[in-house]
């Protein structure tokens, strides 16, 4: 049967419900907005100029990508070893650990962020515990900070990293480890020269997923960052649902979309060049 006929229903849905809305948002971003007149159907680059000439927006974009980068680094540092250990566990411990590591992915981000709010607040679990132990005299502020957002986002994102690395590890032929051992390699050498390089594609693709999801995350920065620590997604939300300046919000969103796509494409290019011939 014709593949396009089989795909036609889904294709129609995507055409109407994805392609058209995205194009409309793109067009919207060129319109202007009046406080009393609402959306004016003019056509110009003024929204983009407004965003690109205002330090306020640079700060927001800068913060967003800095947070995403920090989350990615943390996920690499803690997610990669977890995937290695997972790979080497015995079957039943592994199945329990899989539930613990991957299960939270199925719990709503709102609920998980609520948990972090309870942990990170000035009167929260962590501060109370540290003060009870006498390690802190006054609470260490973690709510409404970028640091707090990073920690909570790392929790949300790290399962993706573990999954990506673990998938790469499962594609490895375990005999390569035995081969390295028979050639005289020590455990640390085997890890550094045989296991880690083979896991590298997983680490790189996991990093890309974590980075792009973090850069466009909304719920966690919104609840932990509050009104003060804004990121791109929360700014777009405010423009749409509070200020009602939809064209400006659309322009910010389009810039985010383009930035994320550019980073993805560049990253994939670099990775492909790096591993040409190795992992097809």
């Amino acid at each position: 049967m014709n593949p396009f006929l089989l795909s036609a229903p889904a294709l129609a849905l995507f055409g109407v419900m994805l392609v058209v809305p995205l194009i409309m948002t793109f067009i919207l971003s060129f319109h202007s907005f009046g406080f009393y007149t609402g959306i004016e159907f003019t056509f110009g680059l003024h929204n983009y100029i407004d965003v690109l000439t205002d330090d306020y927006f640079y700060e927001i974009f800068g913060r967003t990508f800095a947070i995403a980068l920090a989350v990615t680094v943390i996920c690499v540092i803690i997610g990669t070893p977890m995937a290695f250990f997972l790979q080497r566990m015995r079957a039943w411990t592994r199945s329990i650990m899989v539930l613990i590591v991957l299960g939270p992915l199925l719990v709503s981000v709102v609920v998980r962020t609520l948990g972090w709010m309870i942990l990170l607040g000035n009167n929260g679990v962590i501060n109370s515990a540290l003060m009870d132990m006498g390690l802190l005299t006054s609470p260490f502020r973690m709510m409404y900070t970028s640091g707090g957002i990073v920690v909570a986002l790392a929790h949300v994102m790290v399962p993706f990293m573990v999954l990506a690395v673990w998938a790469a590890l499962q594609r490895q032929d375990p005999a390569t480890i035995a081969a390295a051992e028979s050639l005289g390699a020590r455990r640390s050498t085997i890890f550094r020269r045989v296991v880690l390089p083979q896991a590298m594609p997983g680490i790189l693709s996991g990093s890309l997923i974590v980075f792009s999801l973090s850069a466009s995350s909304f719920a966690t920065p919104s609840l932990i960052g509050g009104r003060r620590v804004k990121v791109v997604a929360t700014t777009v939300y405010d423009e749409f649902l509070n200020t009602l300046n939809w064209p400006l919000g659309a322009a910010i969103a389009i810039i985010l979309l383009v930035a994320v796509l550019v980073i993805m494409v560049t990253w994939n290019r670099v990775v492909e060049r790096q591993f040409a011939g190795v992992f097809q």
Binding site: P21, S212, S216, A233
Partner: peptide
């Protein structure tokens, strides 16, 4: 078939587009 990769990329694209962008686009539409 021709266009197979493009079709797959299209159907997976909602994973790549930031959800906030999807949200405002649906709202507008």
């Amino acid at each position: 078939f021709r266009g197979r990769d493009a079709l797959q990329a299209l159907f997976l694209s909602p994973l790549t587009v930031p959800t906030v962008v999807l949200g405002i686009s649906f709202l507008r539409f």
